[in-house]
């Protein structure tokens, strides 16, 4: 078999995301290579896990995919349309379809806004404005709060009145509000108490299934990725070390590095 293969269904249909030769360097004269020639396809409905150590380029990759940063070289197309060189006003198709959940809800929720304004903020975007009036926005707010198991009266309160797990639910509700097709989650549970991680992960998995979302899930926790994702990409120092179906990557890893990572997953003997 040849080097990294794509999942069979991804090769068949046109991929949602098509990433080619993606490189992003930082610093003077591009001394720090955060990403170095990454090729990646994500098809609709896929649940892709991106794993790797800190500094392997995971966050850089998803920021580029969400068009929050520009690559040094390389291309990313979303639904067949190149996004890396588009000016912000023409990125509407991407903004309306891709939403993010960040690692730490203490930083991702504005402490001076009520939960209601936080969750409905994406609806104020020019790409969605007009589609939803204030009344529909209110309805949508109640829908998504309900979807993440928060009471409707949460809307009038502030983020600091909630626990860590609840705050991450607020962040998830915000991501769901505009009805995206792709959810990018950047280490969504690593800042949370161990006791609430499973709840939030199960909620996320349930919402992805119920809303037919494509999930891009970034984590350094392989056990979580194994539980949640069908496809895995292993990043190492800005390059893809291995990619393939989750079962194969975890079951019979090909690269030395991935083997070491997989064998480091803690197991509970029963």
């Amino acid at each position: 078999m040849s080097a990294p293969t794509l999942p069979p269904d991804a090769a068949a249909s046109t991929p949602l995301y098509r990433v080619r030769g993606l490189t992003r360097t930082f610093g003077r004269a591009g001394r720090v290579k955060a990403l170095d020639g990454v090729d990646l396809d994500v098809s609709a409905g896929q649940r892709l896990g991106i794993v790797g150590e800190s500094g392997s380029g995971k966050s850089t990759l998803i920021r580029l995919m969400a068009a929050l940063d520009r690559p040094t070289t390389g291309s990313i197309s979303f639904e067949g349309q190149e996004i890396t060189r588009l000016p912000e006003p023409r990125l509407g198709f991407l903004r309306a379809s891709v939403q993010l959940v960040f690692q730490d809800p203490r930083s991702s929720l504005d402490p001076r806004m009520t939960v209601g304004s936080i969750v409905t903020e994406p609806l104020r975007s020019r790409h969605l404005r007009g589609a939803l009036g204030p009344v529909q926005a209110g309805v949508r707010l109640r829908e998504v709060l309900d979807a993440v198991d928060l009471p409707p009266d949460a809307a009038g309160r502030y983020p600091h009145e909630f626990s860590g797990g609840q705050r991450q639910r607020i962040a998830i509700a915000r991501a769901l509000a505009p009805g995206p097709r792709v959810l990018i989650a950047d280490e969504p549970v690593s800042a949370l108490d161990v006791s609430v991680r499973a709840q939030v992960l199960n909620l996320l998995a349930g919402l992805v299934a119920a809303n037919d979302l494509t999930l891009i899930f970034v984590s350094h926790d392989l056990a979580v990725v194994r539980h949640l994702c069908d496809t895995v990409v292993v990043l190492r120092a800005g390059r893809i070390d291995e990619q393939g179906p989750a079962e194969q990557v975890f079951g019979e890893p090909r690269s030395e590095y991935t083997r070491a990572l997989v064998s480091a997953i803690p197991r509970i003997r029963v």
Binding site: Q99, F102, S108, E121
Partner: peptide, 26 residues
């Protein structure tokens, strides 16, 4: 530098909205 500004940008909120709703109050 906060993630809430990043989240707003990811939804296509432009600088006037970010200035008024996030930067100024904070």
């Amino acid at each position: 530098r906060t993630d809430f500004v990043l989240a707003a940008r990811a939804s296509g909120i432009r600088w006037p909205g970010i200035s008024l709703r996030h930067v100024l109050p904070n």
